[in-house]
């Protein structure tokens, strides 16, 4: 039975033009292309996306506020391996009940260094609850040309929406 454990890909969705990408969950897939198709079926059955990214879960370097508190600065440095600097996306969960949200990018030679720079550059008045960083090159976005075929059909399927059923009105008139 052991042919179901494909790689995990984290899925990020942009809901409207100009809004930041949000983490929505993950899918399993043998490759990024299939991960995007699975992500569309799992996370965009209703009008909820104009663009999607998938990122291998293993590429994401994650630290909660608690983990950062527990670490000494030097410990974070330890796993830094010198490579050429490259851009990293920075996500954080700013509210306790929130989700990972794109803040911007930093240039770094390692995930740990990217994390340090992210914390230095993007910490606001209130420290976020958790941070994610990953190299930009690990992102597979859907082809913008496919966006219509991926996301437009959901808009025509109003029968998937609870607002399409007027049961409250029906029950109110019955109870009178």
């Amino acid at each position: 039975m052991n042919d179901t454990q494909w790689r995990r890909f984290e899925v990020f969705v942009q809901e409207k033009p100009g809004t930041p990408y949000l983490d929505v969950g993950s899918v399993h897939a043998p490759d990024a292309e299939m991960a995007l198709l699975n992500a569309r079926d799992v996370f965009a059955r209703r009008p909820a996306a104009i663009s999607m990214w998938v990122v291998p879960t293993t590429a994401i370097y994650s630290k909660t506020a608690q983990e950062l508190n527990d670490l000494y600065f030097e410990q974070l440095q330890l796993d830094a391996q010198a490579e050429d600097a490259e851009p990293y996306y920075v996500f954080c969960k700013a509210k306790s009940a929130g989700t990972q949200t794109l803040l911007g990018t930093v240039e770094a030679i390692s995930p740990a260094q990217a994390m340090q720079q992210a914390v230095a550059a993007f910490s606001g008045e209130k420290a976020p609850f958790a941070w994610w960083v990953f190299p930009v090159r690990y992102v597979t976005p859907n082809d913008p040309q496919d966006a219509d075929s991926l996301y437009a059909p959901a808009h025509e399927k109003s029968f998937r929406m609870s607002t399409d059923f007027h049961t409250y009105t029906a029950m109110r008139s019955l109870k009178k």
């Binding site: 209703r46 609870s162 399409d164 059923f165 049961t167 029906a170 029950m171 019955l174």
Partner: peptide
Amino acid sequence: CAEENFHKKQGQDIVI
């Protein structure tokens, strides 16, 4: 929960 609300209402609609 957002999606289950559709499930409940379509069922309630059938029962009504």
